[in-house]
Simulated assay, not measured.
Amino acid sequence: MNPGVHAGTRGTPLTPTGLSRPSVRSAGLLLGLALLAAATALSLSVGTRHIPLDQVWSALVAPSGTESDGIVRELRLPRTLIGIAVGAALGLGGAVMQTLTRNPLADPGLLGVNAGASAAVVTAIGVLGITSFTGYLWFALAGAALAATAVHALGGARSATPVRLALAGTAVNAALFGYVNGLQLGNLNTLDEMRHWSVGTLARRDPALLLTVAPLLVAGALLALALARPLGALALGEDQARALGTDLRRTRVLAVLALTLLCGGATAVCGPIGFVGLMIPHAARAFCGPDPRWLFPFCALYAPVLLLVSDVIGRIVVPPSEIEVGTVTAFLGGLLFVHLVRRRKVARL
């Protein structure tokens, strides 16, 4: 018997630490819930003005009209809820994307979601003169949906494969971002307005936007979770998936739809926020392995933790100013991702 692996009850394999894989998964979920609760408390308490947790609790359950109550209820609570929803959507979308394409370096932007949303928003600003975030929302959603549909069609539709989807996504991204850059350079007002949206931030977002897009995020999340089993079969290879009775075309179409709802909705609300959907699935696999039935819930739980912590860091590093969360996730996520790659010894030529 391998000394690093021991037999568990009823033949359940144990990890080198002596815990069975189900125990590790359960512990990982509990840890994720605890971390999410801690990140939520930090998001409500920490900022340019620190508010003790007891005052945060009073503001939530028994507001008395103080200035602290207003900060918590009107500014930080909506920002935190948006961060939780958007983080869960991006993490789940990244896990779906990597499983669908069988590419561990894939992220939701590979299907053209971010590029399509950006192209639609810059069109709304530069051509139609729309300057409100509420106005951006539906254009961003429509652009994300159209871009994802175009990538799926160019990738072969019924005969789409991971390689074809990746190549089609790269081509659509290049074309759309070229259009975005051209329109911005030709119109300085568009460049200035687009700057506020494209940086990726949780600040200054109308809570009504979350209420508007929440049904789409919930629908995308439920669809992604329902696809966990067929996507897991697809990850084994097309022949194996067919042998297990998986409808490949239906699974791919529904997975693209779930990605569009999740990442299109998240991008519409906060602008493009990178690295969350790329890094979180790698970290989650350390607890739950590659099985999508476990990976998807883990990513939906841990991604908001990264997003909220990054947002808190952005508030406190250069007071009284803020660093936008998209910048912090790129930096922090990049460091953590490099650590994971080096620790697992996969970054070798």
Rank of each mutant, 00 (worst) to 15 (best):
G237D: 04
D291Q: 08
G326H: 15
A255G: 01
R250T: 12
G237R: 05
L262W: 02
V317P: 09
L261V: 04
E324D: 10
T251N: 07
Y302T: 05
D291F: 00
A286T: 14
E322S: 14
G314T: 04
G277S: 06
A268V: 07
A255Y: 02
I273T: 13
P304Y: 03
I316Q: 10
L278N: 00
E322I: 04
A241I: 11
A268G: 13
G277M: 10
V309L: 15
D311Y: 07
I313D: 01
L307Q: 08
G245E: 01
P320I: 02
A300Y: 08
T251P: 00
I280Y: 12
T260S: 13
V309Y: 06
V325F: 07
G277L: 06
T260C: 12
L257C: 15
G264A: 09
G264W: 11
H282T: 01
V317H: 13
M279H: 04
T246D: 00
G277A: 07
V325K: 13
V269K: 15
V325G: 12
P272Y: 06
G277V: 02
V325D: 07
S310K: 08
G271C: 13
F287S: 03
V269W: 06
T260E: 04
A266L: 03
G245V: 03
R293L: 02
A284T: 03
R285E: 02
E238T: 03
T260W: 06
R250H: 10
L301V: 02
A258D: 12
C270P: 13
P290K: 15
I323A: 13
R242H: 08
P320L: 01
P297I: 00
L248K: 02
A266E: 11
W294C: 04
F296Q: 12
G277E: 07
G314C: 08
R293T: 06
F287E: 03
A284V: 00
R285L: 05
L248I: 15
T327H: 09
G289F: 10
L306A: 12
M279P: 04
L262E: 08
L278Y: 01
P297Y: 08
D291G: 07
E238R: 04
L295W: 00
Y302A: 03
V269M: 13
P320T: 11
L278D: 00
R315S: 03
R249L: 06
T246A: 11
A286F: 13
G289Y: 11
I313W: 07
P297C: 02
P292E: 10
D239K: 06
A258K: 05
I323W: 11
P292S: 01
V305K: 09
G265F: 01
L259T: 04
T251Y: 09
G314H: 08
V269S: 06
I323M: 14
V269N: 13
E324S: 10
A300F: 04
T267Y: 07
V256Q: 01
I280M: 13
G245W: 07
V317D: 12
T260P: 09
T251I: 00
C288G: 13
V276E: 15
